[in-house]
């Protein structure tokens, strides 16, 4: 009669050990670290004018994973993308001021920093309350590097699921393809 109890105990122990080795159980922004020094050490690969919000969005990729990226292929595990917003310069009527090429002019410091990170197996631990996004997860940080408590990353999942054919990215998959041409 004791054997099954011992077996159950050992089984539970093995399960716990396995879960510990598998990494954090908590999915969500808490498992994404603030990207220190991204502005100086990461690759700035695109700049998107968001006219309706009067923001200029700077898009960076972590260089180590970027070096492994291949055109037409999903981004490698370990890829981290940053979308960092700055306000756009506006005129007296609050309309964005454009340069000679028609581009918005950023001014001031970053106002928000959004991160999407891809790690093997992360997709298995996100909840059913968000749309499937492969192994990507999302976080929104304030400029001081703390998580923005007002951001619900379910919105990130919902928006990025519109790019299933581009590995859930709006700019990076296309950028890797374009620069190979």
């Amino acid at each position: 009669m004791k054997a099954p109890v011992l077996s159950s105990f050992l089984g539970a122990g093995a399960l716990i050990a396995g879960l510990i080795l598998a990494g954090p159980l908590v999915a969500g922004p808490e498992r994404i670290a603030f990207p220190e020094n991204f502005e100086t050490e990461w690759v700035l690969y695109n700049q998107v004018d968001r006219a309706d919000r009067k923001r200029v969005r700077f898009i960076y990729v972590k260089p180590e994973a970027d070096a492994e990226a291949k055109p037409g292929q999903p981004a490698p595990n370990g890829t981290v993308l940053v979308m960092a917003d700055r306000n756009a310069k506006v005129d007296a009527d609050e309309n964005p001021v454009l340069d000679a090429d028609g581009r918005m002019i950023p001014e001031g410091d970053f106002t928000a920093i959004f991160v999407m990170e891809k790690q093997e197996g992360w997709g298995e631990s996100v909840g059913l309350e968000v749309a499937p996004n492969g192994d990507w997860d999302y976080a929104a940080f304030l400029p001081d590097g703390t998580l923005n408590p007002e951001t619900n990353t379910a919105g990130c999942f919902a928006c990025h699921t519109r790019r299933t054919g581009k590995d859930f990215t709006f700019t990076y998959f296309q950028n890797v393809a374009d620069r190979a041409k």
Binding site: N46, Q47, D52, N175
Partner: peptide
């Protein structure tokens, strides 16, 4: 209207039915 191409990238935001947006081409 979303443009992912480098040096042209922009997002004109959500466009509801019957709404219009304009983009002037300067380069």
């Amino acid at each position: 209207v979303f443009v992912p191409t480098v040096d042209f990238a922009l997002d004109l935001g959500t466009q509801k039915p019957e709404e219009e947006r304009e983009l002037t081409l300067l380069k």
